[in-house]
Design a protein around this nucleic acid. Structure first.
Length: 796
DNA sequence: TATCCTATTCTTTTT
DNA sequence: GAATAGGATA
């Protein structure tokens, strides 16, 4: 059957250039399939070509297909490539992120989902502040229940598909957590807001509980494709099963790489791949193992490393590109020296023709970026740091968005509280407390409760709601741009920042918000994501009835938005802001060295890659070293890092590192020992210890305080010293535990900590002000504590 | 009510 | 070291 399709006119060019495995994957017949796609094996190409091929051969209409990714970037990339292959109108295609598609679904069926039409989406920060509010209302001790952990707990339960009633809680602690979870849900429902996990869970539940709707969508989506399957969590897999249950006639095409699963820490279940294979009775798993990205030495290193993992489906990357350059390994005496060395190498690479944007510096944790940044900054090398604060997460932008959200949904208490007194208008904590009490007593939103506290200092509140109402009136019918400009003016935001010393940049960002809105309206066509699904290609909802039991009378399958209600550009823009937080601002366009964590490097590739900080406790990270699963995930992380490089790979580690304001003495990472000797080239003498080769040179330079090469006037960023000098003679790692133990603790000792309660000392390291202990606190897990700071009392 | 100072914590992150 | 939260103070 598929042979016939692949010979269909016009599809030949689509398939041209695919290797046999890729070709087989693209042209697989309907049914469930699992593609194990190694790093750099052309995964996205296979996915997009598959979609194009399905459409070009008439096996599916654009409306009958759904493709799910994790990131907006991946979704955009897919749409972009697809439109280059096929003249398909991209609009209306169900290709997007899990959350984006859920949003689309819930916008269409908001009534059935029990949501207000203008429901707002909470990002992580909004959600956290909502949790805090709930906890305050419940009088929960924030010492015992850390809001962040509660928030994390709720998200984790939802990602597992559990409502409060589903959570089994045996001890008082977790019972309380569940209680907070329930109260949080009630509050969100009351306010008409949903968090990210709720988007997924609502969609799943609506599909599960509404047979007619379920059958409609199962009928509609004949082909479902899932990208990065190894990153799916329980809920996402259950969600998929609602749209295409095992054994149904639908075709599910899952692509993933178990070796690149690096999100178990937030609920991803690698096991979903094996479950999928079994439950969907996948006949043949296709492995894409030919790598088109990296040279041999790089791939050999990656393969050798990942072979140390026990839990694998098994895969080995190969290339025909030849061995290429060896993987370079360097040891530095300090993180500072490491950064200087890196700077030098990067400069050299650039001088010999490598664009800066093809040089990436990867590290395990964000805190490591600072040293590198300083080095690059002082040398005048342009660089770009990924991660950190993104555009829509900036305080001033969030304030502006809060005003806009109140126009759409005044019951959004999170937004209300954010701006009710910003800029300050004489509404203090006391007034807010009164208002909150009134709201709680009547079960109404803060906005609705303002009337109840007028007279008790609520006059200013009335002025605020008046301002919002007036703004809503005045902006009716205006363009999005005009609405935002009005809001910035009326709210007093711009005036406020004008008066601030440091407000110029914030005003600039608010201007940027106007631009973003403008771009959104023109480029995207505002309603694209928010307006409901286009009518079914097969003839719309009418065809549903064929062969199906009659839908319950009360159930209207017509998407609610098609009943004539129009989604405003503002609503669409707010959704866009919540779901696509936008790139962190950057000197985009400029040729800059790329700095990012290994996590955020996933899916990217560069000619030259530096992996820095290859030290025990850092990479693998200390918090992940205690159990084997954690260690294997760290190894996969390293695998991801290595496979980012096309031509040249540098690995570096340092003897000392400044972390959390303290010098730490590190041992090189075990991962270095897991790489094949033959693929490596040591730039510093192997196991040479201190003061040798490169390292010595840099240490001396650094002791002179000048650095090397082009570093002139180094040492200052924004007026503050960039570095604190580490001790002149670092203590050899082997001696760490032996020097004077003034703290009087020993391994195995039972201790008490005011926060974590009782625990047992696992490890002792360092001495004097740097002394630290790893203590197992049972329920709280093992923690590293600085003994100079932490209050640890021995228990007998 | 607003602001300043100190105590406290500190992976990885997209949506 | 740096960011954030909470308490104390003007």
């Amino acid at each position: 059957m598929h042979a016939q399709y692949s010979e269909a006119p016009g599809t030949g060019s689509l398939l041209k250039g695919l290797n046999p495995e890729q070709h087989a994957a693209v042209t697989l017949p309907s049914g469930a399939s699992l593609i194990l796609a190694g790093a750099g094996s052309g995964k996205t190409r296979v996915l997009t070509t598959r979609i194009a091929w399905l459409m070009a051969t008439g096996q599916v209409s654009p409306g009958g297909l759904m493709a799910v990714t994790f990131t907006n970037k991946a979704a955009k990339e897919m749409l972009h490539r697809l439109s280059a292959m096929l003249p398909v109108p991209v609009r209306g295609l169900w290709i997007g992120t899990f959350h984006g598609l859920c949003n689309r679904f819930l916008r269409a069926h908001w009534k059935l989902a029990g949501l207000p039409q203008s429901f707002q989406i909470l990002d992580t920060a909004d959600s956290l502040s909502a949790v805090k509010r709930v906890m305050k209302a419940m009088n929960v001790d924030e010492e015992r229940f850390v809001p962040k952990q509660v928030s994390w707990f709720i998200a984790a339960r939802k990602d597992n598909g559990e409502r409060p009633k589903d959570v089994d809680a045996h001890d008082p602690q977790s019972r309380k957590m569940v209680e907070i979870y329930q109260a949080y849900e009630d509050q969100c429902q009351r306010e008409g807001v949903v968090d990210f996990a709720e988007l997924m869970l609502r969609t799943y539940e609506l599909m599960r509980d509404n047979a007619a709707l379920r059958e409609h969508y199962q009928h509609r989506f004949a082909h479902i494709l899932v990208d990065e399957f190894q990153d799916t969590n329980r809920l996402q897999y259950a969600w998929l099963k609602m749209f295409a249950p095992p054994g149904s006639p639908q075709s599910v095409f899952a692509v993933g790489d178990d070796d690149q699963s690096i999100y178990a820490f937030r609920g991803a279940q690698v096991g979903n791949m094996a479950d999928f294979e079994r439950e969907y009775r996948v006949k043949q798993v296709i492995k894409l193992e030919r790598n088109y990205r990296s040279f041999g030495n790089i791939l050999d290193s990656a393969n050798a490393l990942i072979a140390h993992n026990a839990k694998r489906l098994g895969k080995n990357l190969s290339t025909e590109a030849g061995p290429g350059e060896p993987v370079r390994v360097a040891e530095a005496t300090s993180d500072y020296a490491e950064a200087q060395w890196l700077l030098d190498e990067a400069q050299q690479l650039h001088r010999s023709g490598t664009p800066r944007s093809e040089i990436a510096v990867l590290y395990r944790s964000n805190a490591q970026s600072r040293v590198v940044e300083s080095a690059l900054f002082n040398a005048g090398v342009p660089y770009r740091v990924y991660g950190g604060l993104r555009f829509f997460e900036r305080a001033e932008v969030k304030h502006a968005l809060a005003y806009l959200r109140l126009l759409e949904n005044p019951n959004d208490d999170t937004s209300f509280l954010r701006v009710v007194n910003f800029p300050t208008r004489g509404i203090g904590a006391r007034t807010i407390e009164l208002l909150t009490d009134a709201g709680r007593a009547s079960g109404r939103s803060l906005y609705q409760s303002v009337g109840a506290v007028v007279g008790k200092g609520g006059a200013n509140l009335l002025a605020f709601t008046g301002l919002i109402d007036q703004l809503r009136e005045r902006t009716r019918g205006l363009t999005l741009r005009e609405i935002i400009e009005q809001m910035l003016d009326t709210s007093g935001l711009v005036d406020f920042y004008k008066a601030e010393k440091e407000g110029a940049e914030r005003i600039e960002n608010l201007g940027e918000l106007v631009n973003a809105a403008e771009a959104f309206v023109t480029q995207e066509g505002f309603g694209k994501d928010a307006v409901a699904l286009p009518v079914d290609e097969t003839g719309g909802p009418g065809t549903l009835a064929v062969g199906l039991p009659p839908a319950p009378a009360a159930v209207d399958l017509t998407p609610d938005a098609e009943t004539g209600e129009i989604v405003s550009p503002l609503a669409a823009f707010l959704t866009h802001a919540a779901l696509e937080a936008g790139d962190n601002q950057a000197q985009a366009g400029q040729d800059a060295v790329q700095l990012m964590t290994v996590h955020s490097a996933k899916g990217l590739e560069f000619d030259c890659v530096f992996i820095t900080g290859l030290e025990e406790a850092l990479f693998p990270h200390e918090n992940a070293m205690s159990d084997n699963d954690g260690l294997e995930e760290e190894r996969r992380l390293m695998y991801v890092a290595i496979t980012r490089a096309r031509k040249r790979l540098y690995l570096s580690f340092s003897q000392t590192r400044l972390l959390h304001g303290q010098t730490r003495y590190n041992v090189k990472s075990r991962f270095l020992d897991e790489l094949p000797e033959g693929a490596l080239k040591w730039l510093t003498p192997r196991n040479a210890g201190f003061g040798s080769g490169y390292a010595k040179e840099y240490q001396q330079a650094w002791q002179r305080g000048t650095g090397l090469g082009s570093v002139v006037g180094a040492g200052r960023v924004a007026g503050r010293p960039a570095y604190t000098a580490p001790p002149a003679q670092p203590l050899p790692a082997a001696m760490q535990n032996k020097a004077g133990a003034s703290h009087g603790l020993r391994v195995g000792q039972a201790v008490f900590h005011t926060k974590f309660g009782e625990g047992v000392v696992l490890t002792l390291e360092g001495n004097g002000p740097d002394a630290r202990a790893q203590v197992n606190f049972g329920r709280h897990g093992a923690k590293w504590l600085a003994l100079a700071i932490a209050k640890l009392t021995p228990v007998d």
